[in-house]
């Protein structure tokens, strides 16, 4: 069971982690200040396996990778949103942060709800209201990158061709 942290639309990379903290790329250091200006309680009490639910165009703004790294460092299990800013979407996949697209779930799930998320099938169950949602399942290659802990780790062990093999 995962607890939900809910965020709004057009959440930008500076709201995820303000630029002044981008002097490090250490995930745990960045995680100390993730969402510090818009939801300061998050970094203090987030638990591994918690889920972030956001609005459309999640992660817009800068192309720098600190924003998804900070969220990954906080050990959240995944993000669910109706849509992501393009470069954030790629960066999240490449650093091994699972992200699901599901407008129905993002609209219906509230802060503090208890949910179960199956990353491989895209199935989301909201135990707080009994609703079920089906997200686009993550493609195999995204799961491979996530399992390896990011594309850098994947490439240490594998040839790039194995990504889509």
């Amino acid at each position: 069971m995962s607890k939900v942290w809910k965020f709004g639309e057009n959440l930008n990379t500076d709201e995820i982690i303000p630029g002044r903290f981008n002097i490090t790329i250490d995930p745990l250091e960045l995680a100390k200040n993730v969402f510090c200006e818009i939801k300061p309680e998050y970094a203090k009490s987030v638990q591994p396996s918690d889920v972030i639910v956001g609005g459309q165009n999640f992660g817009c703004g800068s192309s720098r990778e600190h924003a998804p790294i900070a969220i990954k460092g906080s050990q959240a299990m995944c993000i669910i949103a109706p849509s992501y800013a393009r470069i954030f979407f790629r960066n999240a996949i490449n650093i091994g942060l699972p992200i699901l697209e599901c407008p129905e779930a993002a609209a219906d799930i509230n802060e503090g709800d208890d949910v179960d998320v199956n990353l491989a099938t895209g199935e989301i169950v909201n135990h707080s209201n009994g609703h079920r949602y089906q997200a686009q399942p993550l493609p195999d290659f995204v799961l491979k990158i996530a399992e390896a802990g990011g594309i850098v780790n994947f490439l240490r062990e594998h040839d790039i061709q194995e990504l889509l093999a």
């Binding site: 192309s63 720098r64 990778e65 470069i87 790629r90 960066n91 490449n94 650093i95 290659f141 990011g150 594309i151 850098v152 490439l155 790039i160 990504l163 889509l164």
Partner: peptide
């Protein structure tokens, strides 16, 4: 298209991008 720095490094060593 624009990408993050990690992907640039991946392309440096593989010549490829998804």
């Amino acid at each position: 298209a624009g990408l993050g720095s990690t992907e640039i490094a991946v392309a440096w060593v593989t010549g490829k991008c998804w």
